[in-house]
Design a protein around this nucleic acid. Structure first.
Lengths: 159, 159
DNA sequence: TCATTAGTTGAGACATTGTGTCAATTATCA
DNA sequence: TGATAATTGACACAATGTCTCAACTAATGA
């Protein structure tokens, strides 16, 4: 399989690109959105909305420091809806976001340090076909996250 | 595949059986736990903790009506830990519980009416092996829920 | 450039879903 | 029956969002 990749090695999407995507979707280009996008791009790993709120509150640019919580939540939701961010369910059940190339992805998340590896292989496709045939459900979506411990967080192999 | 089954057609587990399981695990058999188990058994579909709290508050048995929220949350957690209940993630991300036979299960949930079909087929097993080999993660767990619309909630096929 | 207008924002109240504490209660066991 | 430790209910608190609304502002066309 070649569809594994650590987020940190992604060819990163740029702020102007994201702004263009927002514009294409009919969203206005505002200061707050720009700062939120910039801040989101600083992250290689999943970040939560509250985390971003805190970071922005301490932002060197005083204007960015005044961003409201609701705006951050709303903007992250928009960014996820236009496929710039991807929502990741954390082991504790709460939501986080990661910046990554668009498309259908799932994540392998380290429960210890949060390192995330995304993969496009979706073993659910076959299952969905079977479920559709067997249950007559119309299947819209699915949620798949895999949790584990990354090599760095594992106990040293031996002495 | 023969491991599909609607919860409503399960040979249901009984309250005494559940009490025995709790006892085997070293939990005391108390009034509140009995009422919570009874109320949980009323459900064929996933129910939330708050839903159960509300139902118990309106319980004909005045004593049951006095159960505290925390007790309900705690007891549901215990019941899930001894495999009497299974925790299901809803499309909105919140948790619900279903009564069902123990074992590793996933769920197909109707986003419209909440009907749940559980299945034991787990397409993630193979993926886990691949991920383990490719990433050196130690994989502990995974989350898989499938969402769709059940036949009853779909638009009538034609006129 | 300027006025219009609809999308956006920040503040803060509110909602949901839990968790933590603690004194009072109670099931269990000797 | 007593002793003891688990359990309970009440309530405070926390995390994570959502909603409303007046003020603001980006985008548009004149």
């Amino acid at each position: 399989m070649s569809e594994f990749h650590a987020n940190s090695s992604d060819p990163r999407i740029t702020a102007p690109h994201i702004q263009a995507i927002l514009s294409q979707h009919g969203y206005r280009l505002t200061g707050p959105r720009g700062w939120i996008v910039d801040q989101a791009l600083q992250h290689d790993r999943p970040f939560t909305a509250e985390q971003l709120v805190a970071e922005l509150r301490d932002h060197q640019d005083g204007r960015a420091a005044g961003i409201g919580r609701a705006t951050v939540y709303r903007t992250l939701e928009i960014l996820a809806s236009v496929d710039v961010l991807s929502r990741v369910i954390q082991p504790n059940g709460s939501a986080a976001y990661v910046v990554e190339a668009p498309g259908h992805r799932h994540h392998l998340v380290c429960s210890s340090c949060g390192t995330t590896i995304s993969f496009t292989a979706c073993p659910v496709d076959t299952l969905v076909n079977t479920l559709t045939a067997d249950t007559s459900f119309t299947i819209h979506d699915h949620l798949l996250e895999v949790f584990g411990t990354c090599p760095d967080c594992q106990e040293p192999a031996d002495s």
